[in-house]
Simulated assay, not measured.
Amino acid sequence: MPPLFRRVALIGKYQPVAAGGTARSAVDTLDHIAHFLMDQGCEVVLEAETAANTGLPHYPVADVDGIGRECDLGLVVGGDGTMLGIARRLARHGTPLIGINQGRLGFITDIPLDGFAAILPPMLHGEYEEESRPLMRAHVVRDGEVVFEALAMNDVVVNRGATSGMVELRVEVGGQLLANQRADGLIVASPTGSTAYALSAGGPMLHPSIPGWVLVPIAPHTLSNRPIVLSDAMEVAIEIVSGRDVSANFDMQSLASLLHGDRIHVTRSDYCVRFLHPRGWNYFATLRKKLRWNEGGS
Rank of each mutant, 00 (worst) to 15 (best):
F116V: 03
W281T: 04
G126H: 00
V61I: 12
L258M: 13
P16A: 10
M83I: 06
R133F: 00
V156T: 08
M123V: 01
I119W: 01
A189P: 11
T222M: 15
L73Q: 01
N53T: 08
L258D: 08
H277E: 03
V173G: 13
S200I: 09
P204K: 08
P278H: 03
I187V: 15
S200R: 11
S209F: 02
R263I: 13
L177Y: 14
P112K: 02
V64C: 10
L135S: 03
R7Y: 03
T195A: 10
G81H: 04
L255R: 12
D65H: 11
L120P: 02
A51D: 12
P278W: 00
M38V: 15
M1Y: 07
R288H: 13
A162F: 11
A91K: 00
H207N: 06
D262C: 10
D65K: 12
G297V: 13
G103V: 01
I86Q: 07
H125L: 00
V236Y: 12
A62I: 02
A219W: 08
N154Q: 04
A233C: 12
S298I: 13
L30N: 14
G174S: 12
L215K: 05
G144A: 00
Y197P: 12
F284Q: 07
T109N: 11
F107I: 03
A285M: 04
E168L: 08
V273G: 03
L120N: 01
G81E: 02
A152C: 02
T286W: 04
R89L: 14
L90N: 02
I210M: 15
K289N: 15
P16Q: 11
R92G: 03
S25L: 14
A51M: 06
P112G: 01
H207K: 06
G85S: 14
A152S: 13
D262V: 11
L97T: 06
N159F: 05
E131H: 06
E239Y: 12
A62Q: 12
G85Y: 09
G78Q: 08
R274P: 00
N225I: 07
G66H: 08
T95M: 13
F107C: 01
P220R: 09
V246T: 12
A91N: 00
L73W: 02
R268V: 09
A18I: 13
E43G: 10
I98F: 08
C42Y: 01
T267R: 11
S224Q: 11
L223Q: 05
G165E: 11
R292M: 14
P191R: 07
T286D: 01
L169T: 06
A183S: 15
V241L: 13
D245K: 09
G296N: 04
G21I: 10
V273T: 06
G81R: 06
R263H: 03
G261K: 09
P96E: 09
A51N: 05
